[in-house]
């Protein structure tokens, strides 16, 4: 049991460390990878917050003597769906930004806000 806790804890730690390193890069691709890693770390962390229980069902069953907490599992499921969707959104936006501006730096150069067209 202790080894599993150690394994889960180091996994979360490693993922988060890598994510924080990647988030500080100046190009969108490493930043997106960092966001993905951060969401994985968060999901595992959220899952572990229901405590690590081995060989126990989350829902009521006739021959179970103990249960694992089902709520974090439901939360993680929601979080996975949301973070997956958000990653897809930012990939598309980063691609569009790269195609329109010709480079993938995340910083902005200051430019005035000029009315660029009407679409009328």
């Amino acid at each position: 049991m202790l080894t599993m806790e150690l394994l889960v804890a180091t996994t979360i730690g490693t993922l988060t460390t890598a994510a924080i390193y990647l988030l500080q890069r100046a190009r969108t691709f490493p930043v997106i990878l960092g966001l993905a890693l951060l969401s994985y770390a968060t999901n595992v962390f959220l899952f572990a917050m229901g405590r690590l229980t081995i060989n126990a069902p989350p829902l009521i069953s006739a021959d179970a003597s103990r249960y694992t907490d089902p709520l974090p599992q439901a939360l993680v499921l929601t979080a996975i769906v949301i973070s997956f969707g958000m990653t897809a959104v930012i990939v598309v936006m980063a691609l569009r930004a790269w195609l329109e501006s010709g480079n993938d730096h995340v910083d902005l150069e200051s430019q005035p806000n000029i009315d660029e067209g009407d679409g009328e």
């Binding site: 930012i90 936006m93 569009r96 995340v106 902005l108």
Partner: peptide, 10 residues
């Protein structure tokens, strides 16, 4: 706008 949008999303 797209590039500041990417910052906002991140």
């Amino acid at each position: 706008r797209l590039r500041s949008g990417v910052q906002y999303v991140v």
